[in-house]
């Protein structure tokens, strides 16, 4: 609770530090506009056109429904991979053999292109939610797994010995030594897994679903509706930035205050 208050207290200062980021975003939009003037509206709609389309789209309840479907899928997939990845990673990290054996498997999972998973999932699950969620899980699970594994493997023996010398009870050792250390590895892994889920969900929907933002993107492509396509991209990026910079980054700053 104290922790939450501190995050809220520091939030305005954090937001204020965002002017630099905002400036670079505006610079990017300026370049975009230049591109639009050079290549014309069909190839690259101007930012103004895009944002106008976007605000028009956001008036429609149907679009919101699609966005919510996508968010649900991404979040659900992320949740599954976060839970399974964390638990399995912790267990694997505790045993030398398990961590050794899991490494090549993780390499295979990470090396396999998500698009290949989508094809397989479509064969296995058909055009359903399962296909999409499966793809998200399979793509983001290894990230969490590796984070948890490394967190558990890298606890210093020196600190363990110190805790033993003070006869810390097992539960206290867990909360004072293991959790904080592992968390410092697992939290960034969650953040990247969330980003990954967000990207994969659109791709999976584009190929294997008839609703959600991905499917809307596929429609826009079919109708050569570039402004809508770009507006959807803006929605995706905007949501990710909102989650990352407004929710996750302030938490990360507080949690990792002790880091160099």
């Amino acid at each position: 609770m104290k922790f939450l208050l501190k995050i809220i207290k520091d939030f305005p200062a954090y937001l204020w530090s965002g002017w630099g980021a905002l400036a670079s975003i505006f610079l990017f939009i300026a370049c975009w506009d230049l591109g639009a003037q050079l290549y014309g509206e069909l190839v690259l709609p101007s930012p103004l056109k895009t944002f106008a389309t976007l605000s028009e789209m956001l008036q429609s309840e149907k679009v919101w429904a699609e966005i919510i479907i996508t968010t649900k899928r991404a979040f659900f997939g992320f949740l599954i991979s976060a839970v399974i990845g964390s638990v399995l990673g912790l267990i694997a990290g505790l045993f030398a053999t398990a961590s050794m054996m899991s490494r090549p498997i993780v390499t295979i999972l990470m090396g396999m292109p998500p698009i290949a998973w989508i094809v397989l999932a479509m064969i296995w699950f058909g055009m359903s939610d399962n296909t999409i969620i499966f793809t998200i899980v399979v793509a983001s699970f290894p990230l969490v797994f590796v984070g948890a594994l490394q967190g558990t493997r890298t606890i210093e023996d020196d600190l363990k010995e110190m805790c033993d010398s003070f006869h810390l009870p097992p539960l206290m050792k867990l909360t004072n030594l293991y959790f904080p250390h592992i968390f410092s590895y697992i939290f960034p892994a969650w953040v990247s897994a969330l980003g990954m889920s967000w990207k994969i969900v659109v791709m999976a929907e584009l190929l294997a679903s008839n609703n959600g933002v991905g499917a809307m993107l596929a429609n826009a492509r079919a109708q050569l509706d570039t402004p809508t396509a770009l507006a959807l991209v803006v929605v995706m990026i905007g949501t990710l930035m909102l989650i990352e910079y407004v929710i996750l980054e302030p938490i990360k700053r507080e949690v990792e205050l002790w880091r160099d």
Partner: peptide, 15 residues
């Protein structure tokens, strides 16, 4: 009761 002081401080970095 006993306590141990190590060559290095061995403090918990997150505390």
């Amino acid at each position: 009761s006993s306590a141990f002081t190590f060559q290095e401080p061995r403090l918990l970095p997150w505390k």
